[in-house]
Design a protein around this nucleic acid. Structure first.
Lengths: 200, 200
DNA sequence: TGAGTCATTGACTTTCGGTCAGTAATTTTG
DNA sequence: CAAAATTACTGACCGAAAGTCAATGACTCA
């Protein structure tokens, strides 16, 4: 890598880090590009070299969190279904709690905003989540943890909607409860209720 | 009511109706106050007589939908639990489908946005929803439809998060499925799974 | 009918996202 | 090693849209 490329990468990363800090403390409403670039020590124009628009950098940040969860999940290929799903939920909510409520708000906002959602990854965020969970469930069927006639699509939808529901509720309630506790509630109670009929 | 008060009310309503139309067709991103006032046939300043800021009028619109659902629910006091909950879900999702995906997006956005959420009603939207469902469940306990040891708070959280989860997923997926179908799925499958342990 | 009240107006300010022609730092070429 | 080429970076500028406010005029009431 040449020095030029290295510097460019550093500048880009500096912008991302700065934005993350500002988002955590002030939320998306108060986020403005001039603040970002001033804090990052670059000119406003530089921002638009690396990101198409303001929403773009936020989507990038959320994408980063998501990749981390995905990575952890890929590391545990031989665990059983319930364990995998627990990890999935757990990491999701841990991330959400760690990064704070403003980031969580932004996660949801950017997910439902047509301006950022479509190119969230190579496919839509929705399709990505669906695929991820479908794989987990199909794997469980292959491993004879789940019955063959398990309604994978239905379960996938229910689980994902529960996950996003929890996040949305957390933001709505302005953070009155601990997301981790809720995940535990869900894993212990509802996940079992949903799956029990189909577990072998 | 004097003619002056009547006119003021009409102006306010005209602004709301116009905003609703614009929201449905173009979404929140494209919504601007000048378009609203131009379409409503008033000056820009008039808008700020009736609403503090742009987000304010949208919250008002969403509040309107919510009141309608609440009204329907209050009309059926003597129905049984499952029926009540079905109506709750059904009306929610029917409303969402009727008003369109952009309104639904706005519903969620305004709910998680601290700028509009806190004064959504006299209490927070979150508290309002919680109370409403808690009442339904407590009533069911009184009517001996549910066991006394039913974990009302847990169930309330799960049901609400499922509801908001469905809406969020619908927006995420850019409307690939029918919300009504999903409600049915939920009512038939998950609601029973969640409640079965506690139904008498 | 005239004084007082209050809804309405639209020009104005401010803020902020986004652009672009020019500059400076780095790399390549001869 | 110096000139040419490339490309990261700059910041003044633009336009759009949020929000303000002093002036206007429609309505009310004594």
């Amino acid at each position: 890598m040449t020095k030029r490329q290295e510097n460019a990468l550093k500048t880009r990363q500096k912008l991302i880090d700065t934005t993350e800090d500002l988002l955590k403390t002030n939320g998306f409403n108060a986020l403005c590009v001039e603040d970002i670039t001033k804090s990052a020590g670059v000119a406003k124009g530089t921002f638009y070299v690396y990101f198409e628009h303001k929403e773009d950098i936020v989507a990038e940040i959320c994408r980063g969190y998501f990749k981390q969860i995905e990575y952890k999940l890929n590391e545990m290929t031989d665990s059983d279904l319930i364990e995998k799903l627990s990890v999935y939920f757990d990491n999701f909510m841990k991330a959400v709690e760690l990064y704070g409520i403003n980031i969580c708000r932004e996660w949801i906002r950017s997910t439902i905003d047509p301006k950022t959602a479509p190119d969230y990854t190579d496919m839509s965020k929705w399709q990505y989540d669906i695929n991820m969970l479908t794989n987990i469930l199909n794997n469980a069927i292959e491993n004879r943890e789940l019955k063959k006639d398990t309604p994978v699509e239905l379960l996938t939808h229910l689980i994902i909607s529960q996950l996003y529901g929890m996040m949305t509720c957390w933001c709505m309630s302005d953070g009155v409860f601990e997301p981790k506790d809720w995940t535990k509630k869900f894993a212990d109670f509802q996940l079992t209720a949903i799956l029990s009929e189909y577990l072998i």
